[in-house]
Write a protein that binds this DNA or RNA. Structure first.
Length: 485
RNA sequence: GGCGGCAUGGCCAAGUGGUAAGGCAGAGGUCUGCAAAACCUUCACCCCCAGUUCAAAUCUGGGUGCCGCCUCCA
């Protein structure tokens, strides 16, 4: 498949270092707060990448770390009057809950920084020994950026350009203002570990270098994360790892775009910050996941409730079709007929287009378009008299059913029983729109009475009344069904 | 100031050299007592200007607008 590599700034054919085997590392969260929908996007995007690579038959080892020691965590602990370990435990737990709901698979390894202090010390010491890092009198250790020739190659900046910026204040003990910390001397009241340089804690960047090396043989095939991690985080990881290893750290660098609100980045200061929990209070997890897949992963995606409503409607339409198809396929009487070549060709063509979309840098937005086309085809078969009772129709439906199932596994959607999903969706909508169901039921009964009396004027008036409440009726052979518009 | 991204119908969004996928919304039709759902039909010359080309939304140059990174950040 083609994957966009931030390092080369173009799409490249993805070829693993070892045939058939993919080692992938994605930067996880710092566990100091509930995860927001930006975290959700990153998690979903890389989850789909893992699923797709596995679908292609590759043996993927996936690592996603937790940063569990950091200024933000310490601050949060002080705010909440809790220990930093409690904070970390709470928010890692919350992360897992959120991700499970979103259908994001657990990583094969989910290492925490504090479980690998020794590895980080070892790596830092190795960098000092090679002249790539130095310790200071107060017990900090810094990476010497000037000692690493490739510094800036990922983010496309030169040290001189960066230093021209006026906003970088030289640290007192740094040789160079751009040098970054591998180890920070402990401040009073902060967690610390013993090290050759005294009590302290690791810097942020070193954890990913140390932990990736610990779990797999470098180089990585893919290193991923949010766009904002390119600089300084990933740049620094490259410097550390490549300086220590003497060879490439990761073959492909994959970065997802942001979730925005009103075309701006989410931030606490702008007050447009949405946690996953906020959204799941009024939308099903699968709707959020579906929404996140409606744009190609590198583009920014603008979050809004209107957009969520659109995603929800589309998802509902697909599930309704899945339900109808499932029901139809349970029939055991079909009139003999040869497969309809035109329809089968159309299915094959759609399957090809779906695959091409996924092959093209994981274009899930395009892939969903093809899924919708297949759904329309399913509905057409179900509606076409004759065909919907013949073996030709059954053949087509069975094929579509298989494909949709397969694609759903890759995208992490369509995994639920349609009936169950649709019922849950209705409940979610009732609660979100604060619908008074007893009132609805009562109106429906009144309408049924009117209809029984052939008073269609009254019957239609009640329908209009219900429509004004956002309720649509369906008169089916099994009785009246209502749903939300 | 340095680096980078984006601009496609009412809204969202694919497409990156051969004359515009899909979703949501709208219009007409089939179906229905009337509806709903579904299906069919319909609805765009792609921010502006100039250039390259037989051919550009798609390449080049310029302009305008928006966004991100350079500081913790998915």
């Amino acid at each position: 498949m083609q994957l966009y590599n931030t390092m080369s700034r173009k799409k490249e054919e993805f070829t693993p270092v070892r045939a058939g085997k993919v080692n992938m590392y994605v930067c996880g969260i710092t566990a100091y707060d509930y995860s927001h929908i930006g975290h959700a996007r990153s998690a979903v995007v890389f989850d789909v990448l893992v699923r797709y690579l596995r679908y292609l038959g590759l043996d993927v080892t996936f690592i996603r770390n937790f940063t569990d020691v950091d200024d933000k965590i310490i601050n949060r602990a002080n705010q909440e009057g809790a220990s930093w370990t409690d904070i970390v435990g709470k928010y890692i737990g919350a992360f897992h809950e959120d991700m499970d709901k979103l259908g994001v698979l657990r990583a094969d390894f989910e290492p925490k920084a504090t479980d690998h202090i020794t590895d980080m010390i070892t790596l830092s010491q190795a960098l000092i020994d090679k002249g790539h890092a130095y310790s200071t009198p107060s017990g900090d250790v810094y990476f010497r950026v000037r000692s690493f020739e490739g510094y800036g190659k990922l983010s496309g900046r030169s040290l001189d350009d960066m230093q021209a910026g006026a906003r970088i204040a030289p640290g007192e003990e740094k040789e160079d203002p751009m040098d970054f910390a591998l180890w920070k001397a402990a401040k009073p009241g902060e967690p610390y570990w013993d090290s050759p340089w005294g009590k302290g804690r690791p810097g942020w960047h070193i954890e990913c270098s140390a932990m990736s090396e610990k779990y797999i043989t470098l180089p990585l095939d893919i290193h991923g994360g949010g766009l904002d991690l390119i600089f300084p985080h990933h740049e620094n990881e490259i410097a550390q790892s490549e300086a220590a290893l003497g060879h490439e750290f990761s073959r492909y660098w994959v970065h997802n775009g942001f979730v925005q609100v009103n075309s701006e980045k989410m931030s606490k200061s702008l007050g447009n910050f949405k946690t996953i929990r906020d959204i799941l209070a009024s939308y099903l997890p699968e709707t959020l996941r579906f929404f996140l897949l409606t744009r190609q992963y590198r583009s920014p995606i603008d979050f809004s409730f209107d957009a969520m409503d659109d995603a929800e409607k589309n998802l509902k339409r697909i599930y309704q079709s899945l339900e109808a198809m499932q029901e139809a396929l349970q029939k055991d009487k079909w009139t003999p007929a040869k497969p309809d070549a035109a329809i089968m060709d159309e299915i094959d063509k759609t399957a090809r287009l779906w695959a091409e979309s996924m092959e093209d840098d994981l274009n899930t937005a395009a892939a969903l378009g093809h899924i919708n086309n297949l759904v329309r085809l399913v509905n057409r078969v179900l509606e076409t008299k004759g065909l919907n009772k013949s073996e030709a129709g059954r053949e087509a439906l069975a094929r579509c059913s298989r494909l949709l199932k397969e694609w759903g596994v890759v995208l992490g959607i369509f995994g639920q029983e349609p009936q169950k999903f649709l019922a849950e969706l209705k409940n979610m909508q009732i609660s979100r729109k604060q619908i008074d169901t007893s009132k609805i039921d009562s109106l429906i009964q009144q309408r049924q009475d009117a209809r029984a009396a052939k008073d269609f004027t009254r019957s239609d008036a009640i329908r209009d009344e219900l429509a004004a409440l956002g309720v649509a009726l369906r008169d089916t052979p099994q009785g009246v069904v209502w749903e939300l518009l």
